[in-house]
Design a binder for these strands. Sequence first.
RNA 1: GCCGAGGUGGCGGAACUGGUAGACGCGCGGGACUCAAAAUCCCGUGGUGGCAACACCGUGAGGGUUCAAGUCCCUCCCUCGGUACCA
Length: 813
Amino acid sequence: MATPYDHTSKDAVWQERWREAGAFTTSDDPLDARPKRYILDMFPYPSGAGLHVGHLEGYTATDIVSRYWRMKGENVLHPMGWDAFGLPAENYAIKTGVHPKETTKQNTDNFRSQIQKAGLSYDWEREIDTSSPEYYKWTQWFFLLLHGRELAERKLSKVNWCESCKTVLANEQVLDGRCERCDTEVVQKEQEQWFFKITEYADRLISSLDTIDWPDGIKAMQENWVGRSEGARIRFAVADSSDVLEVFTTRPDTLFGVTFMALAPEHPMVKQFTTSEQQAEVEAYIEATTKKSELERQASDEKTGVFTGGFVMNPVNGEQVPVWIADYVLMGYGTGAIMAVPAHDERDNVFANKYDLPIVNVIGGLEDPYAKEGGLLEHSDFLNGLDVKSGIQTAIEWIESNNAGVRETTYKLRDWLISRQRYWGAPIPMVYDDQGDVYALPEDELPVLLPEDVDFKPTGESPLVDSETFHAKEDMERITKKLHDAGTLSSDRTIVRRESDTMDGFACSSWYMFRFTDPHNADAFAGKEALSRMMPVDLYVGGAEHAVLHLLYARFFTMVLHDLGYVEFDEPFQALRNPGIILAEDNRKMSKRWGNVVNPDDVIAQHGADTLRMYEMFVGPIEDSKPWSQSGVLGVRRFVDKVWGLFASGSLAAGETPSETRTLLHKTLKKVQEDIEGFSFNTSVSAMMILANHLSEDPTVRVTQEVADVFLKVVSPFAPHLAESCYEAIGGGGLVAMMEWPQLDESALQDETVTIAFQVLGKTRGTFQVAPDATEEEALAIAAQLPGYAQHVGNAELKKVIYVPRRILNVIV
RNA sequence: GCCGAGGUGGCGGAACUGGUAGACGCGCGGGACUCAAAAUCCCGUGGUGGCAACACCGUGAGGGUUCAAGUCCCUCCCUCGGUACCA
């Protein structure tokens, strides 16, 4: 192995040649008869830290798949772009005064160059940037579209507020009661904000999961997040009043076990129930609980509450039920009030025990009193003898026919809070008149440009509020006139200001997969023809951390577009795969804090792009998280050098390929094909290593023209620069990246002999070689010669012989 | 608690629809080359016993099904990810 592969002189040359040849350009020609394939990476937020080796794991995988299908003759769409709006650039601006526009430009330039150095085969003609007006014009257009269909609305609601980021957050961006961005505890505030009504799609977001090839875990997370529960809304008449208290329950079968009611402390009827004797105690309790943060309320296992003094009537038996206030009841779910059944609900049980309330068991034969199946109802009048499931149905029917309530389904999913009080995002395309009423801008007013004359200090209001260019007088007059002409604004009013909030960055990323099909379209977010030709995405790869964020929002946008007739499918991503996290060598997360970050630039500079790519594919299954290993990188480097050593001299073995070599060659081809299609790359690399080891044992005989041709093409999706360099060395013309994938020769796969394990009573006692199609008799005859046969069988009678051709011969004595 | 994914050598990990467990790589031991080292190449490498042929044990634990179990079934333990007073 004379000279190692010299990546420094070669890699960049091939990258340039691919670019010149347009090797990765996707065809937009409607007459192109090739099958299409859309392979997409989750586009990155271009952070100042630069590209991470973790990014490259997923990108390399999709790159391999893309290069493979191109060589197989498909029209592959494999684009890259930037999710460029976001808080870090703005926070950096607050600290340093550098405009986010500039930071973003620097960062995207850096990301692009890092990605190109890795030899990734993107079609750069289609690069998009969500922070460019050409792009966010259409993000704003989507806002108007949703608004026009009453799927976007401004409403007063309890919202999550992050004091450190000075903005509101969607539920999906709150983790364990903390801001996902900065870890600050999120507080609840009552505010008027813009929402997208994703809850209208709750059922479909669950049911259509069945139609897509996604990891089970992600599907389960989405299903849990939507959180559908079926049950009933039941009215309890308030004692001495014509009012009713409504509760939601999934267990109407336990109505006869209700012994108290519990209201959330914020419930509007608290005052009404509170008697004068209880008033002092109730007020004290409410003051104490409202002081507690959401986080504290959830953290404590203790259940606390106070009796209001009021009563309601149980509709099924007319019993008086005491009404309590308890902070384990949440105002945000159901009706903010519950019917408590301490015999069959663990939380109610704890509460009842603490406050000495009665417990009435209404289900017999349950081992676990809280189980939702197994027992039969008792002490329950018309429900007696029924199991839980039919008890629920019968109870709901009774309730409905007695006008005591209705069947109801509730969801945990909340509407998507879309407005942000920050600068670096797409402005919401709405305006306000002199009375404070809000109007949608006409479409020809788009894009609403982000102004540059802003002060980046976070105040809790968007920096756009004080921008003069943003509220330019001529703009306000022009819009006023347009709205007057359209008749949407009454003639005695004028438009005075724009909406100054910007949109959540997830709005931009909810539709970017469409834009890649037609990235320069100035008249539509994407042309209908381009959409139907390239969508949906066939393979989508990115981190599982977006399970209930981006992936849910993008599905919602697609369903809306489907319903409005813009697209004919309602799921954007047919198949989804999540790469695992690459940990540092010390098994901790890579982090500046630990000083254990591996920079891809360093690895590429030292060993070349191919070593990095192959290493990342070789370490383990792509979906697992696994630690980085410096010596593992060296192992792959040796493989790269070994392959180069086979071809560097430029001379090939003359004559026919030895049949053993030819068999291994085609086995490798088959294995790699299956692995790429099955998204399992580590075993592909292993198969290539086995072949390379075999070839290097006797290269002057084994490395024939045929071997070179097939092997280099098989290597090329993984180590494209190496494959091109080797191909050039042996005098081949053209680019491997643009060649046709080799044809698998099934007939070459058959080995001349196979190894069979000889077993006695299931224990292996030797192995022997035999023709693959040998009969049981032939195999037995050969096995009888083995020393293990004499030792373990001898003259004993064979009671049974199990022969699995090509695998085992097992005898029972 | 609930949902999802997993527990295989010193390490990362292989093992098709039940059919020779440990492929491939790392590490380690020995050897070649070298004044020496690095690099490279060759041999060995799950554990225990044995000079050896070989034998026994071995895929988180315990049971079971089967000629045969990492793989299927039951019970349990542990790790990781998600989620949680959701009524």
